[in-house]
Design a protein around this nucleic acid. Sequence first.
DNA 1: CCGAATCCGTCGCGATACTG
DNA 2: CAGTATCGCGACGGATTCGG
Lengths: 142, 142
Amino acid sequence: MLEQVISSEVDACRVLLDQLADKWTFTVFLALRDQPHRFNELRRRVPGITQKALTQSLRRLERNGMVSRRIVETAPPGVEYSVSAIGKSMSEPLDVLAQWAVRQLPSILAAQAQFDSRPESHAHSDAADLADYDTVTVRSRF
Amino acid sequence: MLEQVISSEVDACRVLLDQLADKWTFTVFLALRDQPHRFNELRRRVPGITQKALTQSLRRLERNGMVSRRIVETAPPGVEYSVSAIGKSMSEPLDVLAQWAVRQLPSILAAQAQFDSRPESHAHSDAADLADYDTVTVRSRF
DNA sequence: CCGAATCCGTCGCGATACTG
DNA sequence: CAGTATCGCGACGGATTCGG
């Protein structure tokens, strides 16, 4: 029945989201999408990231087959990361999502502002939880 | 330059991901997408969710303008949630992603299996962290 | 240069109990 | 029926330190 079809999509999507949705993995993927990079190159391309976080993100992406890790024989030896074929194929649906997000962002921000500007109605939270949402949202490195 | 364009997409996408990527919100959204539902209806449609988690997810979706909350005057009174216009528009790019995920899921699982089946190479983790990934991935309510 | 290993603070989440 | 309030744990992210 219908439920079955939906649930498979749900699961597949959740798997995907779980992979990308931690704090850095998605950003790292985008930083790596244009061209291969070495470890510390990536670290510079993603300001604010820790070695630990970068390693975790790369391992995660590598495990899912999204990026490939290659040892380059130079002096001193280095490691080069690049997005794989399947990783590139993921870019397309991601771009669709990104375009939607860019277009709808104003509407979303407006909805957020409207929602936040009525502490009476059924607002339970003491506005402490909402604070970070906004700051994170507005953040744009220009 | 190019970097600027990319960064805006990154930010917009990250905002979107941050909204959907917590444990339940995305699932709740899908459960609500087909038709409006009341609170406890939703709770039954999303097995395993807590009242608290459901409330949080709904508040979050409501804040972003994705769902609407409506008080229905019956006896006893109830609350009806439904996805808004902007929420429905989000379904389209999400479907693109879902279709990709469904198609690529076998490849992803294969890559994971291959990655996990070489504890020697540069596997650092004691296979403890990997366990949950797999179980979560395989999970499908049939 | 490329990580691994450890400690530690924070927060999401679940379980439970209570309200109108 | 539709939530709110509180508690406790476990996972996650950040900072730091050590190794190949």
